[in-house]
Design a protein around this nucleic acid. Structure first.
Lengths: 218, 218
DNA sequence: ATTATTTTTTAGATTAATCTAAACTTTTAT
DNA sequence: ATAAAAGTTTAGATTAATCTAAAAAATAAT
């Protein structure tokens, strides 16, 4: 069985590598894990010895099949718990991450099975991120940043890319939420900021930076 | 903040000492913690240095006020989670202990507050054990073992003392549950076993040992 | 009241996860 | 193409939680 720390490394590698698409460097991993490069090297050796990651000295790490599978299970648990916290306990979407970081490590297959059923088999979490199914499969939906969507055309907010609490709180404050129907009514040349209409009711200005982090579908 | 292990020691001392009523020996504690006496001594020194327990060499340990308070908070979390697992997720009462042992260590005041509300402020867990309130207070109810209750008189099953999965499964199988209305219809001289009527519908035989572990009120 | 037995503690190792400082590779820039 | 900079690894410590074996104290038994 994996330790709490090993699980967190696998999850971090999963995210940094874009689900295994590219190598992850020691420094990058040290940064996200809030630790020192030397510690990362130690862990890389350990996970490599367990056949969870491929590690080549000085080049970086990436997930092997079993490591990716483990990572997906942890992500599944994380997202199911976030969904529980928001849908059942009334947490706001900016409050859930920290708690889910702890809950994702609870070891019980039965618990996750029953939680999934209780939540009626959700497919996305409160931030719009897909929840892997029991076998680790993810239903990918093509989404593009709001910043790149054509003006005047209606689209639907599907997910947030950067889910930092302050960004999420800001979105709530201006009235943006998952599944909101929006359209760009004006694009400011100068800084790329957007004027956006929400549900044909409300108009707000969004920085280009923010619009890059809002994922939409047409 | 306390480590996972420190929390488990405090909880064990709480239970073994009967909520702080008596000293707990090193060997006893080693037994329940599934570890060696030498390890217990080490931990006793540590918890004592943190002013959570009173530890006198060769005599034993007991909880200090702050240690007892910590223990009660952990027990509160444990029992709220057990209630959640049974009432909301559909676990059976013999399946919950192991999972709650993990969940009780999740650090989030907000989570417990909201969980408590979601469960509508329960006062007892699925085994009939009282749930400490947010300040750690426990509502004690006078209960006696079914084995010591007078014959023919009706009483209500309120709690199980020993909550081992096999005992709980056995109780379910013969139809005994929390809040069941029962009465002793016969007491066998030879071995002290009882014939018990459940809800005036069903009759079962229960060993003296089992009847000692069923707590009832008149 | 000694002796034997049981219990507990101490001393010294071990393992996982971490660190710092020094050594070594790779990459970048001239 | 070589030197400087950046990134990575190794070596050697540290901390928490554990262990074994030996020593010490408390308890029980004669």
């Amino acid at each position: 069985m994996l330790s709490y720390t090993e699980e967190n490394y696998l999850k971090a590698i999963y995210h940094l590598s874009n689900a295994g698409e590219r190598l992850v460097s020691t420094n990058e991993l040290a940064e996200t894990m809030q630790t020192k490069p030397a510690s990362v090297t130690d862990m890389a050796k350990k996970l490599s010895a367990k056949n969870l990651i491929a590690y080549e000295k000085y080049y970086g790490v990436n997930l092997l099949k079993s490591g990716k599978q483990e990572a997906l299970q942890i992500i599944r648990k994380h997202r199911l718990w976030e969904t529980f916290l928001v849908d059942k306990l009334g947490f706001t979407w900016d409050e859930v991450h920290e708690v889910a970081e702890q809950l994702e490590h609870i070891q019980s297959g039965l618990l996750i099975e029953k939680l999934d059923k209780f939540l009626e088999y959700p497919t996305v979490d409160p931030h719009g991120h897909p929840i892997p199914d029991p076998s680790g499969k993810i239903k990918e939906v093509k989404q593009i940043p709001l910043a790149e969507f054509p003006v005047y055309k209606k689209c639907t907010i599907r997910a947030v890319k950067n889910g930092s609490p302050s960004f999420l709180q800001y979105l709530s404050k201006i009235g943006i939420y998952i599944d909101a129907s929006v359209s760009i009514v004006d694009k400011v040349e100068f800084d790329g900021s957007l004027e956006v209409s929400i549900d044909n009711k409300k108009r707000v200005f969004i920085s280009r930076e923010a619009a890059q982090n809002l994922m939409v579908t047409g």
